[in-house]
Design a protein around this nucleic acid. Structure first.
Lengths: 200, 200, 200, 200
DNA sequence: CATGAATGAGCTTTCATTCAT
DNA sequence: TATGAATGAAAGCTCATTCAT
């Protein structure tokens, strides 16, 4: 799948990037393949030259990013630092992903991660892999006594990941203010909430 | 718009209930109106006798349930109990909603609450209302000193609500075990995580 | 078909009159049977109590009026007056019909008289009857020498009837000014044009 | 919008020509888009590749022909000949249009020119333009004394154009005999009637 | 007579996908 | 590679008509 030629312009990349914008703006179901082609400035037959179907375009976008995320989590997990710091790194990575390309994260959350009847089902294993990795972090912390064992690791993971996705959803829906500062604050606040708790 | 007659069988209700099952099983976009009619055991056109469009069926389902949820949160907020107890009540109500009708909550979360480009946008105000009510609970607790003020209320709300939705998502995707006991544990764990934190 | 009871209100008549307004306003194809019922203030099942179908409503309206027109032409033809006077009477009758109920004449012209593929075909004989009667007037005038025989009677009839229908069409489309005076002038002008010609 | 390539066969033209036959045979409302596609021997969707809707197919047919008619009238008006000769040319052009493509003229008259509630309303300006041009011819003739001023030009136009349309309607309904000779005679008779009058 | 819930065939339109060039 | 004309299945929606009450 690596770009076979790296021509003047990589049309395949052009199409993928255009698809992100179109999926984010109109939604996967609402948009047409021709919208993607128009956005990319190519004939829409070309989309089918590079991808088997409209679905495969989204699959590609998701997998590219998600594998990157899994890699980042794995790497983080290898560090010899407190679990809290690891969770901060993971939350930070996801929020940086959003900061870097909000449209892509919007598409991934809205069209894949929560789409239980379509892409969410297709990629359930990949999605579960992320949860499993984070659970590893939590479980280790519980063993070392950094985290209390009272709360099952699975629940802890869901709370942690759900909090992140919800903050992103808040930005996506315009319900939470967005700015460089807000992004930074979000990283800290999420982990502080989940790890430290709201109680005084 | 309420059933004007309450005949032998309320066909309108029959259609709504069938729609929940069909939307949950196949997804809103993937299913056809005829699937709903078949599931309800009524003629195709009757769906359009009671509802203006396929969209309106989902709108109706969402609003019915969401207004009920808003009412429950408002009522909870009136109680003179600690914030933690209020959050437990709210989490409890949502999880009970899921226990009572998992299909309906699946549809609401998957097709509305996270559907930024379609129904989520339509019902953004209603959705935001729920967040605002929960924020009220948190802010009051911060004023009384029950919760620390360090974490902005908006973030706290997102963490709390996101954790709940994510647990539900875990059940929906089959990534989290489901049972009567699990439902009960979930209520406690979520609030304990958000309020008490994961740290030992 | 005579009103069987002549009740407090003749619902059948109510429906017919409502149909005229609705057909005129929205067109036969564009309107729904329920529009007629609403306009008449009755349940739309009642339309089917009095009429076999939507088509039959228009058939009834057309035949009622057209038979009246045929009667008027026949009567006119019996008079012992110059052909010009007869044509004036016929044009006068049609224009009076329009003045009395513009909606009905609009419906008859737009939905029947020119509707070659639907009601025009159904009622072709009735329509042709009118032409035949007028042709009789012209032919007699040609025999007596009042009209010149150069122009075949069929053409003369088409010119005469076409001129009238076109003036009505002008009113219907709002391309010709409408007023009591205009109606009177129209009667005279049409016959003067057809009989006397435009030439100085 | 003109065929950009002029391929082996111009499918767009094929569809338009097929539509004329189908509209004429079955009527605009009664026919289905698939009838047009079948008649043209193309796939269903191709109609929508070239036209936005079924309506637009008829719009296109009407405008193509009507603009041609307007051009012909304008050109005729520029000639320095008696008004009677101009009217003969105009009537001649319309009748030639019918002779050349009876189906198209049938469609234009039945589905547009008299369809007060649908296409007639849409194209009211274009239709009125034709009347205005003819009125110009009449008014000039009235100024020069060729025509008498007694009859308002608007009425004269309606009589003239109505007579033509009615003769065409006669052919369309099969109430008037059709033949090459008849077409020629019609041109002369119509103008002779309107200009010379029926009176001896 | 009168009602309007219930039916379902049939329509227009959309759009992912194919394929000849 | 690149194009966009061509395909046709599939879906939402309308509405004339029926019928139980």
């Amino acid at each position: 799948m690596a770009a076979p030629k790296q021509a003047a312009v990589d049309k395949r990349r052009l199409i993928l990037d255009a698809a992100v914008r179109v999926f984010a703006r109109e939604g996967f179901h609402a948009c047409r393949v021709s919208d993607i082609a128009n956005e990319a400035g190519v004939a829409y037959g070309l989309v089918y030259h590079y991808f088997k179907s409209k679905d495969q375009v989204l699959d590609t976008l998701f997998l590219e990013r998600w594998d990157f995320l899994l890699g980042a989590i794995r790497e983080t997990d290898l560090q010899d630092v407190p679990a809290e710091q690891k969770l901060t790194a993971i939350a930070g990575f996801i929020i940086e992903s959003y900061r870097h390309d909000p449209d892509l994260m919007k598409v991934i959350i809205v069209e894949v991660t929560r789409a239980a009847n379509s892409f969410g089902a297709t990629h359930i294993d990949k999605i579960g892999e992320a949860y499993a990795l984070i659970r590893g972090v939590v479980e280790k912390a519980q063993k070392t006594g950094e985290f209390r064992s009272e709360i099952p690791a699975e629940f802890a993971v869901m709370a942690f990941y759900g909090a992140i996705e919800q903050v992103l959803t808040g930005w996506i829906f315009g319900l939470l203010p967005e700015s460089e500062t807000e992004y930074e604050l979000a990283k800290a606040h999420i982990v502080r909430t989940i790890v430290g708790g709201l109680a005084a």
